[in-house]
Design a binder for these strands. Structure first.
Length: 878
DNA sequence: GCGGACTGCTTACCT
DNA sequence: ACAGGTAAGCAGTCCGCG
């Protein structure tokens, strides 16, 4: 063992490998991770251990920075539910002969549709796979097969992962602190109750709500007020010799040598290990100060050190480690003869997990669309380490020319270490925002952090709702059952192929308008879900007397007798966000750390709330219920249309509106207040002043406008000049025009501004004609959303540009690649920017692009594009 | 054989 | 594997045109 390795192993305070020859490392890890006493440890993960046939919880103990495993000893077992009584089940030989079957139990469950208790049979098994998951002979498949003609036969809750079932049944609080003693775990809820003053304040805010609603608020507050400890973690990255072909190494084959591995830890260590190879030069790369570097002659020894790290850190963070780094390490180690049982990596089909600690693949987290948009404010557009890190950390990967196999040692080390540093930065920046956000989601979704990071918003909401059902002893219905009872949709979508009609967009009034007030319904859809008691069980409820409680513009009605689960869950989360976390995150009387925590909480809630309506219209969602989605959208249309009508009655002119907003032209304070009061009274909805524009510019196009704030800041929505595929020369000219507009303070100043804008457009046109723009400036930048071969219906321009490349170069362009191309005169009309020359450019096409980009604004200013161009044509003659 | 009207595909955006 | 609505540009098809 090297000296430097010894240094950091002392820091981790426990050994990483078993005594020589005693037992396999994975078994040894499991034993070493057991404890019978912990005063405070945070539950981060759960899984199922097949060998021990029980659920395992993984706790993080902050003072030692260690993970401890707790094996369930409560006797909880996998099960599913069925409508068949035990005596009928006993008549099914295949079931009775099933080796996994343990026993039957008669249990009472509340039927969510009828809201009454029912007897069902619980089929308990020895192991999860016997319930469902075996290719043939799983219990969940045997039962319906045995009774094919029985339409009333039902099997429920058979497709929930076992550890999820365990979490839900036991009310396990993911992400929360626990005490462990005498083999039992105890929630530390009393120690973490918000201070009396705070709890009192929150109680006061919700005093008018029902006691059921207030109970939900208390549950959320308990989960969301509890702080997150500092986490010890390592970020890791590997490099592989691409050797002969310049293809991406295959992690399941793992044919190529691992040449370099680097890692950066939360306790300040930076280390690079390199493999000595023939003909590689030392190099002149400069590693950051304090970086440890070690050369190995033997790849097995190098990998052993890496496996030690993976066996000793509680949290391992990678960027694409699921698909590449950890997978490659595992297969490579096996290929080189290391025993499978000595590799502390657990491989699934899509995930790669760790035997000891927890692996978080940040690629999957940053790839999540909901988080990208709502948690990270669309700061990055592509899902590469380079793009995400540059946007968030302001620092990108190391660039070099040629192949990675040609890099000298120190250059390779610097390159590899940078990737680890960036990955580390993505986990650590902004006071560990990424990790905290993950833990908040784990608490709300009742899901292990590893699953949170790898799954989408529909699974978070599914898990949150399933847990709620189990806690209230409500039977979780199957998707099929919901669909049969509640049916499909009835409205007609505007877009072909969509299931139902969505939001309305108001035709804008073209032109420039000063003093624009934008009002919007705060959290429109969650508010509707709360106010209208929407949920899969309450919509189209079985009660005759509820049928008159109609949803506008649809044939749906909603229950008046029973409070809907979705309505309660989403309603309480929404109110808590709006009335507590959002306001208090800006309250200067709170300490800075509290405000920053509140800001993370409110952003996380926003992610969940924004998706809460959409999931009901998503077929793969566990509680898919199209009428709920359709009703929500329909009420939204009703609310905004009647608000606009009311505004007009009040004498306010409405310039524009989209989904949940109305743009009003110079309304008086009194008029605004009247409208707000009316929506509260008539619709039960909160309408707020969202933005005030000094002036706004509209063309005839929807979802297209410029809004200038009193301080000169500018909102640009939907305009071509802002889109990321627009060539730089157009973006630059467009921004120049925006700069001019931001300085306009009154209608009088517009005259001069128009003159300057004409100048900007004309200048852009002239420069184009004179070939003064470089190819980079002229390039369109388009993301290829799928593999080249999948473009079988049409061949878009960016694909055309790639298709002229030789095959081996084409193969390197896959889904997610960014293509830069210019438009050329000769067939096929496009060429990659890097391969084109300035004289091939199709100037005429580019003039059309100048026109569309600026027309969106010129129209509103009453300026004609041709007039501008005409002038310049005249000048070019002189 | 060619051009205009049309539909469909694709990307990027808005709420 | 949240949803639907809009803009823009191009690809591909159909039809009329003696």
């Amino acid at each position: 063992m090297s000296e430097s390795l010894d240094t950091y192993l002392r820091k981790t305070e426990h050994e990483t490998s078993p005594p020589q020859g005693k037992q396999s490392r994975r078994e040894w890890i499991k034993e070493k991770s057991l404890t019978d006493k912990l005063s405070r440890a945070y539950l981060l993960s759960a899984t199922y251990d097949g060998a021990r046939a029980s659920a395992v919880l993984k706790f993080y103990e902050p003072s030692a920075g260690r993970i401890y495993h707790w094996y369930d000893n409560t006797g909880h077992k996998p099960y599913c539910l069925t409508s068949l009584p035990p005596e009928e089940l006993k008549k099914i030989p295949k079931l009775m002969d099933n080796e996994g079957l343990d026993h039957f139990e008669r249990v009472e469950k509340i039927d969510p549709f009828e809201n009454r208790a029912n007897q069902v049979t619980k089929i308990v098994a020895h192991d999860p796979l016997s319930i469902g998951g075996k290719p043939t002979g799983s219990i969940r498949d045997i039962i319906p097969y045995a009774r094919p003609d029985d339409p009333a036969l039902k099997v429920w809750e058979a497709d929930i992962k076992y550890y999820e079932s365990f979490i839900y049944d036991q009310g396990i609080e993911m992400g929360m602190p626990y005490r462990l003693e005498g083999g039992k775990i105890f929630s530390l809820e009393d120690a973490d109750k918000p201070s009396g003053r705070l709890a009192g304040q929150i109680e006061e805010i919700f005093a008018a709500e029902t006691s059921e609603f207030r109970n939900y608020i208390r549950k959320w507050v308990h989960l969301l007020e509890c702080p997150v400890p500092a986490l010890k973690f390592v970020a890791l990255d590997i490099e592989v010799d691409p050797s002969e072909e310049a293809r991406i190494p295959d992690p399941t084959e793992a044919m190529q040598t691992v040449t370099c591995v680097s890692w950066v830890t939360s306790d300040g260590l930076k280390r690079v290990v390199l493999l000595r190879r023939e003909g590689v030069e030392e190099g002149e790369g400069k590693l950051p100060e304090g970086t440890q570097i070690k050369y190995y002659d033997d790849e097995v020894e190098l990998l052993s050190e890496v496996l030690d790290i993976l066996a000793s850190y509680p949290l391992v963070v990678t960027f694409n480690g699921d698909q590449f780094d950890l997978r490659y390490i595992s297969h490579r180690a096996q290929r080189l003869g290391i025993q499978r049982d000595d590799i502390p990596i657990e491989m699934g089909r899509e995930f790669t997990l760790l035997t000891y600690g927890i692996h978080l693949d940040l690629y999957r987290l940053f790839f999540n669309r909901s988080l990208q948009v709502y948690a990270f404010d669309q700061k990055y557009r592509e899902n590469t380490l380079e793009a995400v890190a540059s946007a968030i950390l302001g620092r990108g990967k190391i660039k070099f020319d040629g192949s990675i196999s040609q890099l000298p040692y120190t250059e390779l080390a610097v390159y590899c270490l940078r990737d680890s540093e960036l990955t580390y930065g993505l986990a650590a920046y902004d006071d560990h925002l990424t990790l905290k956000l993950t833990i908040v989601l784990a608490r709300l979704a009742k899901m292990p952090v590893e699953d949170v990071i790898r799954q989408g918003v529909s699974n978070w909401i599914r898990s949150m709702m399933y847990a709620e059902h189990r806690q209230r002893n409500i039977l979780i219905p199957t998707s099929k059952e919901i669909l049969e009872r509640k049916g499909e949709t009835g409205t007609h979508a505007m877009i072909k192929g969509k299931k139902y009609r969505g939001a309305v967009v108001i035709e804008p009034t073209p032109g420039v308008n000063f003093n624009i007030i934008v009002l919007d319904f705060s959290s429109l859809y969650p508010s509707i879900i709360k106010h209208w008691n929407l949920s899969y069980e309450t919509i189209r409820c079985p009660h005759e007397e509820c049928r008159e409680n109609r949803i506008p513009e649809t044939s749906h009605w909603v229950c008046r007798k029973q409070q809907g689960i979705t309505s309660l869950l989403i309603g309480s989360l929404k109110d808590l966000r709006v009335k507590w976390y959002k306001v208090k995150s800006k309250d200067e009387t709170f300490p800075k750390e509290t405000r920053s925590w509140y800001s993370i909480v409110q952003r996380t809630l926003k992610v969940l709330l924004n998706a809460s309506y959409g999931v009901f219209g998503a077929e793969h969602f566990g509680l898919y219920c199209p009428p709920v989605a359709e009703a929500t959208a329909s009420i939204g249309r009703y609310d905004i249309t009647s608000t606009i009508k009311k505004a007009q009655e009040l004498g306010i002119s409405v310039i524009y509106g989209d989904t949940d907003s109305v743009f009003l032209k110079s309304p008086s304070d009194k008029q605004i207040q009247q409208l707000i009061d009316w929506t509260k009274e008539a619709l039960g909805m909160d309408l707020d002043v969202d933005k005030v524009y000094r002036y706004a510019v509209f063309s005839t196009r929807k979802k297209n406008y410029i809004g200038v704030y009193p301080n000169g800041n500018v909102d640009i929505k939907g305009l071509t000049g802002k889109k990321r595929n627009t060539p730089e020369f157009l973006k630059a000219a467009f921004n120049e025009m925006i700069g001019t507009l931001s300085e306009v303070k009154s209608e009088n100043e517009f005259f001069e501004a128009k003159g300057r804008i004409k100048g900007i457009v004309k200048d852009c046109y002239t420069k184009l004609k004179r070939h003064e723009y470089s190819l980079e400036e002229l390039a369109f930048t388009v993301v290829m959303s799928k593999a080249i071969s999948s473009y079988d219906k049409t061949t878009p321009q960016h694909v055309k540009a790639v298709k002229v490349l030789p095959d081996e170069e084409q193969r390197r362009v896959g889904a997610g690649s960014v293509i830069q191309y210019v438009k050329t005169k000769r067939e096929p009309g496009v060429k990659l920017a890097a391969t084109a020359s300035p004289d091939e450019i199709d100037v005429g096409k580019y003039v059309e692009h100048i026109q569309t980009t600026f027309k969106q604004v010129l129209d509103a200013l009453d300026i004609s594009f041709n007039e501008i161009i005409g002038i310049s044509k005249l000048e070019s003659f002189i």
